[in-house]
Amino acid sequence: MLRQLGKMTPMPWHCARDFNKVLYNSKKLGGLIKEDECMKAFQEALESCNLHDLGFVGGPSPVEQ
């Protein structure tokens, strides 16, 4: 879906919020280790759309709990 959205305009664009995906197991806090193939597919989708992780760290806001 990200790739399709990225092709819709030549202009820069911005996505915000949590995709419920991890880019690297080293960034994951608890739970099961994710398969490299799943993370690689997400990494490639972000790269092809020229999107970058802003490095947010922390839990959900009080509104989201």
Results as ranks from 00 to 15, higher is better:
58 G>H: 04
5 L>Q: 05
38 C>K: 03
44 E>I: 09
11 M>W: 05
52 H>P: 01
20 N>K: 13
12 P>H: 10
3 R>T: 13
2 L>R: 02
47 E>M: 12
54 L>P: 01
16 A>D: 03
37 E>Y: 04
57 V>M: 03
36 D>L: 00
50 N>D: 14
10 P>I: 00
25 N>Y: 04
8 M>A: 12
53 D>S: 05
44 E>M: 10
14 H>D: 02
4 Q>F: 06
65 Q>I: 14
57 V>H: 01
52 H>D: 00
40 K>M: 10
16 A>P: 00
20 N>M: 08
25 N>R: 05
11 M>H: 14
25 N>W: 00
4 Q>A: 11
21 K>D: 10
7 K>W: 04
3 R>E: 15
3 R>S: 08
5 L>I: 13
8 M>E: 11
62 P>E: 10
9 T>E: 07
37 E>M: 04
65 Q>S: 08
37 E>R: 04
59 G>P: 00
11 M>Q: 15
18 D>C: 11
62 P>Q: 11
46 L>I: 05
64 E>H: 13
40 K>T: 11
8 M>C: 12
65 Q>E: 12
60 P>Q: 06
35 E>M: 01
25 N>P: 07
1 M>Y: 02
49 C>A: 09
62 P>K: 14
45 A>C: 12
64 E>Q: 14
46 L>N: 04
19 F>Q: 06
10 P>R: 10
13 W>C: 06
49 C>D: 10
4 Q>V: 10
42 F>M: 01
21 K>S: 13
44 E>N: 14
31 G>A: 02
32 L>V: 07
48 S>G: 06
45 A>D: 15
62 P>Y: 09
12 P>Y: 07
44 E>K: 14
49 C>Y: 06
33 I>A: 05
18 D>A: 12
6 G>L: 07
24 Y>I: 00
27 K>D: 15
24 Y>R: 08
20 N>T: 11
58 G>L: 06
42 F>E: 03
41 A>E: 14
24 Y>A: 03
35 E>F: 02
7 K>E: 15
17 R>I: 08
23 L>P: 00
26 S>V: 04
63 V>T: 15
43 Q>H: 07
59 G>C: 12
42 F>K: 01
53 D>K: 04
55 G>Y: 01
4 Q>I: 09
31 G>N: 04
59 G>L: 09
21 K>V: 14
